[in-house]
Structures are given as C-alpha cells and as structure tokens.
C-alpha cells in the first residue's frame, strides 16, 4: 500500500498473506479459491473496521500525510487554463501561497491556496506551507483583483499555520492576517474555501472567509495545533492525540459547529490514494455551490458571508 499509516498495518499484513497464497497456489498449482475468497471477505470486513473507527488523531496524521495532495495537485485536476501569478507588489513572492486565474467548467475564476512541498527540498522552498506576511498579501492582491473583474474566488486551505519567525513579525504577520479577514468579508464575488489538509489557526483563516467553507473528510481545522495545545495545557506535547480528541478538529465537528457547509468524502485510506477521484469530488461540490452563489448580487454575497461568520459562537447569560 502506498504511504500506509500505522493504523493501516493489519490491512497491509492481510493483503500480503492473500497475495502470498495466490502466488503459492499458482506455483504449486493447488486450488485455494475458497480459501482466498474467505480471506478477501475478511479483508473487506477489516477494512470497514479500520476506516470506520478512525480517530481524530489518525485523521490528523492523514491530513499531514507526506503524500497528501496539495493545492497545485488539485488545481491541475479541477481547472483548465491555469496561469500562476506571483508577488504581493510590496516585498516579495512567498511560495508558501500560490494563486492565479483559471477556468472552472469554462468560467474564469481566481484560485488561491496554501502550498506545501512534495518532498523535503520542495518543502524548504515552500516553507512547509507556512506563509509570511507577503504570502497573505499576495493572496489578498489576487482576491481584490478577482473582485474587480467579477471572478469568483476559490481558496484552498492547507497550512500548519502562519510562520512564527522574526522576519514575519517585523513585516506585520498579525496585520497581514487581520487585513485578509477584513477584506475577504467585503468581496462582492462568490468565495468558496476548501480545507484540503491542515486548517492551522489564523494562517488558515486568512484564506478561509468564504460564503461556503467545504472540508475534506480527513482534513482538520483548529485554533492551535493539538501538539501546541497539549504543551500549553498539560505541559506535555506528547499528549497531542488527547488534545486532538478534546479540541474537536475533524470535518464532522466543523459541520456540527456550523463552521463549514459540507464534508467532501475521501477515498478509503485518504485523498492520496486517488488524487484524480478526490479532485472530481471537490470539483463537483465546488461547482454545485458556485452555481447557487452566482445567482446572488454582490451585496447579497457580502451579507451572506457576514452572517455566516456573525452567528458563530456559543455563550449564555448568568441567572441571578
């Protein structure tokens, strides 16, 4: 199995056994058909068990999987005519964020997204998908351009978080994120965000203020990484799994909290098992939402987005 996770180990072992038996029966010309069929049956059951009982911590591992498809992978499969644009016109070009224009079923759209690397070398170039202020400002520039030319915005969210470095602070990391939240809320075009992997805190939200926020089944979204939370709350970063549980970071949780509108299913074992299939699922969902949003006027879109976020929060009043 390609890029197996530790919890998938029993499946891999069983698959190996089945394969061995098959070769053995061929070599020795002994009929094991019944035996093989029984094992295949058991495999199916085990598969069901493994993937239905998948824990938040395991989803977190899947969301961070080295082979997890990235924004550019999906762009390639979902859109046509993609032209990448660069730079924030202020400081530089942050490769942890990509963006440009493309066509979705023939409709011109602006695409932006966090970009993680495919391997270590690429990850160094992409800074592991952790933007500096210029990354957020590049995305903002492209989104404002979309607004001007009345193009919908499709934003892919996949970052461990905004980069916590001194240069980032000097150039106004906080302001860059805040400005995106401020400006995105005012775009007069449809904005659809898809959390495809890690939705890490403010750095994720800076591309996440959409009319519709969709999320892949194994993606996660949280205010702080479970590792960070564990080390702050319990002074023990190794309790990340526990924190992942307590913090409610899964797509299903986001749906319950009405933070997202839809969970996009993943193939068994995760998006990396079938990138094209996954892209098809995303494209179908995005297009469906876009068709709805395209009926709305710019003011209706602003209003819709405002109330989507306006209503989030749980509070009560003291009774004395």
């Amino acid at each position: 199995m390609k890029g197996e996770m530790p919890f998938e180990r029993p499946l891999v072992e069983l698959r190996q056994k089945i394969d061995e038996l098959k070769t053995f029966s061929q070599e020795r010309d002994i009929d094991f058909t019944d035996e093989i069929a029984r094992l295949e049956e058991r495999y199916k059951k085990l598969e069901e068990e493994v993937y239905s009982g998948i824990t938040p911590a395991q989803r977190m591992q899947l969301a961070r999987h080295a082979q997890r498809p990235t924004t550019l992978d999906y762009i390639q499969h979902i859109f046509t005519d993609f032209i990448e644009f660069h730079g924030d016109r202020l400081f530089g070009d942050d490769l942890a964020v990509v963006g440009g224009i493309a066509k979705l079923n023939g409709v011109p759209v602006t695409v932006v997204g966090h970009q993680k690397g495919k391997d270590t070398k690429d990850n160094i170039v992409r800074n592991f998908g952790m933007p500096h202020p210029e990354g957020f400002r590049k995305a903002l520039r492209l989104m404002k351009q979309a607004d001007k030319f009345r193009r919908p915005v499709i934003a892919f969210v996949d970052t461990p978080g905004a980069y916590p470095g001194s240069a980032a602070e000097e150039r106004g990391q906080s302001e860059a994120i805040a400005r995106n939240l401020f400006e995105m809320s005012n775009l007069g075009v449809p904005v659809i965000c898809i959390v495809i992997g890690e939705g890490g805190s403010g750095g994720a939200l800076a591309l996440g203020v959409g009319n519709r926020v969709l999320m892949l089944e194994n993606a996660i979204y949280s205010v702080i990484s479970p590792n960070g939370a564990a080390s702050i709350l319990w002074k023990d970063a190794s309790k990340a799994d526990q924190a992942a549980e307590a913090m409610r970071i899964t797509a299903k949780d986001m749906l319950d909290f009405e933070v997202i509108e839809e969970v996009i299913p993943e193939p068994k074992g995760g998006a990396h098992r079938d990138v094209e299939g996954q892209a098809r699922f995303i494209k179908e969902a995005v297009w469906r939402h876009l068709e709805e949003l395209r009926q709305m006027t710019p003011d209706q879109l602003r209003e819709d987005r405002y109330y989507k976020f306006r209503k989030i929060g749980k509070f009560t009043y003291i009774t004395r």
Binding site: N186, S201, G202, G208, V223, R248, F257, I312, G313
Partner: peptide, 13 residues
Amino acid sequence: SILSLMQMAKTSA
C-alpha cells in the same frame, strides 16, 4: 477551539 478562531473573522468583518 474553532469557535475562538472564528471570532477573528467575525470581529474583523
């Protein structure tokens, strides 16, 4: 958790 994060978008909007 996520509800706290979303307050950032709410206040900014």
